[in-house]
Write a protein that binds this DNA or RNA. Sequence first.
DNA 1: TACGTCGGTTAGTTTACTTCA
DNA 2: CTTGAAGTAAACTAACCGACG
Length: 287
Amino acid sequence: MGGEGMICDSGLVLRLGYEGWASLQPCVKLEPSIPCSASPAEGSAEPSLSLSLSEVAVPRAAAEVDAGRGGEPRVLARQSSPHSAVSSFSGAYPASSGATKREKDVVSEEVEAERGVSCRASDEEEEGSARKKLRLTKAQSALLEDMFREHSTLNPKQKQALAKQLNLRPRQVEVWFQNRRARTKLKQTEMDCELLRRCCESLTDENRRLQKELQELKALKFPSPALYMQLRPPATLTMCPSCERMAGPAAGAGDVTKGGVAGAPFATATRAHFYNPFAAHPPPAAC
DNA sequence: TACGTCGGTTAGTTTACTTCA
DNA sequence: CTTGAAGTAAACTAACCGACG
């Protein structure tokens, strides 16, 4: 599994990868590498974060998200244009027709539906010519999508059967599945990136806030950290204002990982509830 | 070696938008 | 001002190619 890493403003190293393609489970690890000059050098604690996408039920297929531009559903069953060399209906409507493109498309679809035609493109006689491109019919796309939802890959037998059912060549089915997997992965990656971006923003804010708090603390020069702890409960470390969940004294007490210093007065002894966009509960809109 | 999958790319098609007569 | 044709950029996606396990 290859991983890509980036350091965001919050000083966290974000690593993104996939635990295998089929399962589409991106894993994300946020490792603290707080570069801030006001980092807890003086025995203070730095938050230890560990977010994992593996625990998350990320919306699986992009198919469900896959809408046309501007949210307008696209008509996939559209046959090729009158100029298309592979059009099954190159004569269905003349180019000089007064109908608009969209109207033509509708007509084409209706005619196609009536005839029950599927586009078997690039027949053997086409070999040697320039690359041809077919447009799958709505029915073909639907069936392929159904199959894809069941299995993202096909064994040779399934491929053969599906090709026969769709009146396509096995190679076409194979290519469709390849492209479909690629599209799904791309969509998933985009979604992951968006989640990471939000997470990064959130952590940046938190980092900023903690630094500010640290500076205030320094300015106050409390006689003892314990006093500060009494006056400033760790609940103030709540990261996600929308979640309204705070790390109470019991939550994570003693759970000071490598990032924190066990026993250090400013470790806040607790791990604040850092907003995890990959957590099972849906991320708040504010995040 | 053969085969399947993947990432990357190419190219055909469609759509949305702009311009202009 | 409205309308329709023409041009264009962008998006989508089938098909292809080479690398890899």
